[in-house]
């Protein structure tokens, strides 16, 4: 375990370096630059701007400069939000997305696994069908439609939950539900499918023969073994949820990090694009490492190299 983590830290650095390099190149070859605007600027002014942000240097020089700053933990400055560093922006925005994402993750896991288990246990019954319809709604409606529906029903018709903004814990409920809709559906389907797979294994029958009650068997034996695919999905899912969703933060006016994944790209805000990408990458690697460790805990026979 110890060596696994050490090796993972080492490989994480390499992965992040590769990601930073590819993104660094990508932002520079995509057409359109940070200072292209509705009103075209005179070339002299563009030259002043490029000089200010060292964009007048050759790409290799810029790359060396960037890596040198990155090594010090400095993610650079934003061209769009003048005088704000990427570190500052992410420091403000990440905690918000993280809180919301964790709540969304809890909703997704609770609803997803509960729905999936109920569907699997009552396979073929009306409950199973109802669960299936809910799941299908969760994935076939785009999240902006789900958000708009939730706002309409709870915010405007019944007025029991806030429409948007980020003021109190109640303001988290609708966004977290919107965030959780699609992942919950995915988890429910996976849970149902893997429980059905396991439930017919002979050792489950054996466990029941030993006198364990039905639900005890499900919780103690079945779920534990059905968890592998669920945990697999949870790795990237955690990273996606806690770094924020563009649509959800946009719809509910939440000052999170998710919106930068889109707006930084549309603004061609180079350092901010690489910054958000690296934060996402880092969290993804951590989450996936935890997933690999959990695999071994669930099934000690699984061997995972660092």
């Amino acid at each position: 375990m110890f060596w696994l983590i050490i090796k993972r830290i080492f490989s994480a650095l390499i992965v992040l370096w590769i990601v930073a390099t590819i993104t660094f190149v990508l932002v520079r070859i995509v057409p359109g630059g940070p200072f292209d605007a509705d009103k075209n600027l005179p070339p002299q002014i563009i030259a002043n701007l490029k000089a200010k942000y060292h964009l007048d240097k050759s790409v290799s020089e810029q790359y060396v400069l960037y890596l040198a700053r990155l090594a010090k933990g400095d993610l650079g400055v934003s061209y769009k939000y003048v005088n704000r560093s990427v570190n500052d922006i992410l420091k403000d925005a990440f905690p918000v997305s993280c809180q919301l994402g964790l709540l969304g993750l809890v909703f997704a896991i609770v609803f997803g696994i509960a729905l999936g288990t109920i569907a699997a246990v009552n396979r073929g019954s009306t409950l199973d069908t109802l669960a299936m319809i809910k799941v299908t709604l969760g994935i076939s409606l785009p999240s902006f439609v789900i958000g708009a529906l939730l706002i309409f029903v709870f915010g405007i018709q019944f007025k029991i939950l806030p429409v948007g903004l980020w003021e109190s814990p109640y303001h988290m409920i609708l966004p977290a539900l919107t965030l959780a809709a699609s992942p919950a559906a995915y988890l429910a389907r996976l849970t149902r499918s893997s429980i059905l797979e396991i439930i017919q294994k002979d050792w489950v029958r054996t466990a029941r023969c030993k006198g364990l009650s039905f639900w005890q068997t499900i919780i103690k034996h079945v779920l534990r073994n059905a968890l592998v695919p669920i945990v697999t999905v949870l790795g990237p899912l955690t990273a996606i949820l806690i770094t924020g969703s563009f649509v959800v933060e946009f719809i509910y006016a939440i000052p999170g990090m998710g919106r930068f994944f889109i707006t930084a790209v549309t603004n061609r805000d180079y350092d901010l694009i690489i910054g958000t990408t690296l934060v996402f990458g880092l969290i993804l690697i951590i989450a996936n490492t935890i997933v690999d460790i959990v695999y071994v805990m669930l099934n000690p026979k699984m061997q995972i190299e660092g």
Binding site: A148, I151, F152, G155, I156, K159, V163, G164, L165, F250, I251, Y252, A253, P255, R259
Partner: peptide, 15 residues
Amino acid sequence: FMIPEQATAFALYEN
């Protein structure tokens, strides 16, 4: 406020 989505801002106005 900085509410990017029009429908949300409108709902807030209505409320």
